[in-house]
Write a protein that binds this DNA or RNA. Sequence first.
DNA 1: ACAATCACATGACATTTGTCATTGTTGGGC
DNA 2: GCCCAACAATGACAAATGTCATGTGATTGT
Lengths: 200, 200
Amino acid sequence: MIRLLIADDEDLIRGALVALLELEEDLTVTAEAATSTDAVRLAREHKPDIAVLDLEMPPADGLRAAEEIRSESPIKIILVTRHARPGVLRRALSAGVSGFVPKTTPATRLAEIIRDVAAGRRYVDPDIAASALTEDDCPLSDRELEVLRASRTGASIREIAAQVHLAPGTVRNYLSTAMAKLGVGSRHAAAHRAWEEGWI
Amino acid sequence: MIRLLIADDEDLIRGALVALLELEEDLTVTAEAATSTDAVRLAREHKPDIAVLDLEMPPADGLRAAEEIRSESPIKIILVTRHARPGVLRRALSAGVSGFVPKTTPATRLAEIIRDVAAGRRYVDPDIAASALTEDDCPLSDRELEVLRASRTGASIREIAAQVHLAPGTVRNYLSTAMAKLGVGSRHAAAHRAWEEGWI
DNA sequence: ACAATCACATGACATTTGTCATTGTTGGGC
DNA sequence: GCCCAACAATGACAAATGTCATGTGATTGT
């Protein structure tokens, strides 16, 4: 019997996933979490075989939770995500997750993937893996990503500078290089593009 | 037996929802759709009792699909959404939907809600309904919303003007009034705010 | 030890923006 | 009929923004 922890902030989705997986005779859900912090705590308490985590989960995202769980136990992790971009996959793999499943995967496949991972294999969505290999990597530096993240809400240069503790001029330089790298004409377009690509 | 159409662009979620609902003896899923256009077509072909539509669904959103389905048959609609804001509820109700369910609803409630709607009642999430009554309505005019929608991707004034077929100066005026109404200092902040509120 | 590189910063400059005043049309509501 | 709101546009002005050249410490590579 494979023991599972399911974590997703949306109760409806989480409940539906549990219903789906409980239909399988060799799977059982021993814990449910609605937040990343609960996921870490319940993983510690219940020691499931596999934790199925949604990537988009407050307060810290599923990736952070995955790293934390992996750091203290050998529980295998399967990340489920809506936002299946190559950049995210890269970060997930370096965090040591065993499975990477976009929400576009047919529901019937999920149980099979869980069994695969339980057997010690890894599963990565083939489409994403392919584009991760062909698509070019994120060309932005850490600082560029940081200022772009801060621009997401439409903040002014001054506000961004205050947020990241840099001089306004420096912020403008980082934004300028980021815009040049992304081939767009404003930081807002750059932030939008970087978000689409899964880089921020 | 209540016959259902389930529409959600994410295969995993859709499959999980089907599994959840098929557990109930008095419910059966007769059709599944992954796009809003498929949803409209399948509703026409299968004539289910109730259509459960995800609000976030390409190419046109679930609201558009709901309007179209209602315009040609008395099939009842339940909208499921991640983005449960009062503004969205308002639009949904005027489109004639019978149920409005945020994804934060416990999974066990969904079947009950479906039975309620099948019995001719309406269901609206109480939390959202409450805030829809207290929170202030969207203060923006149609044109203001239109230019804000076009700003979402970080486009320049000229690009927005081309998109909405207006003079650049006019676009600036609309954006200016929208910014004033929302109390922010840039169109990007305004677009972000309007999006957060579920207005665009 | 020396250059090369990087992270951070400044100042000057042209362009893009947001603001405001003003004009005009249209369609409802009272 | 009158008033008001939404819609459409123009011109002028100040502030914000993006670009570029340049400079300074630190770190790194050889």
